[in-house]
């Protein structure tokens, strides 16, 4: 996929903090050197084609009351994966859901990240997800420490 220099400038300008002011896009457009109208139009296209996943806020989950999070890894038969994904993704507490490859001592091929208020509620939700889908082989991994959490900076080379 090829991106124009303007696209790269848009991505670089938007991956930093978005201005909290009355006309934020106008400010960004001026920095990039394009019109506000052109910027808004291109952002709409980027959203539509999925290049831009989301324009908005991500909160610090601990501070807003979601104090426990667990990575739940599952062993799902490949032919059931799409169907199990639909069931698990329907729960708002499930924020991420991926398939992943396995390794010789690592049989888990399906990953869900769940965010809740306590570890007990994470354990309870995993039980419910298991009962609902019939997937019985799983493991909860609680986060013990966050060593790094940043956003990727694209096109910096």
């Amino acid at each position: 996929m090829e991106f124009s220099d303007t696209d790269k400038r848009i991505v670089k300008a938007l991956q930093s903090d978005f201005p909290i002011c009355s006309e934020p896009y106008k400010k960004i457009a001026e920095d990039i050197g394009i019109s506000e109208e052109a910027l808004l139009h291109r952002l709409g296209e980027m959203k539509e084609t999925g290049i831009l996943r989301k324009m908005g806020a991500v909160l610090r989950h601990m501070e807003v009351g979601f104090k426990a999070n667990a990575l739940v890894v599952w062993v799902v038969p490949p032919e059931r994966m799409d169907e199990v994904a639909v069931q698990m993704c329907a729960h708002p507490e499930v924020t991420h859901c991926y398939d992943r490859n396995t390794a010789p001592d690592w049989p888990y091929n399906f990953y869900t990240m769940i965010h809740m208020d306590t570890q007990e509620s994470c354990i309870q939700l995993a039980k419910e997800l298991s009962a609902e889908t019939g997937i019985s082989q799983y493991e909860l991994q609680f986060t013990e420490k966050e060593w790094k959490k940043t956003s990727m900076k694209y096109f910096m080379e």
């Binding site: 938007l14 991956q15 908005g56």
Partner: peptide, 18 residues
């Protein structure tokens, strides 16, 4: 006050060639 980690754009890395 630290409630917001980031306000901004979240890109799909696959679609940016990453």
């Amino acid at each position: 006050a630290g409630y917001i980690r980031k306000v901004g754009a979240f890109f799909n890395s696959d679609k940016l060639g990453y």
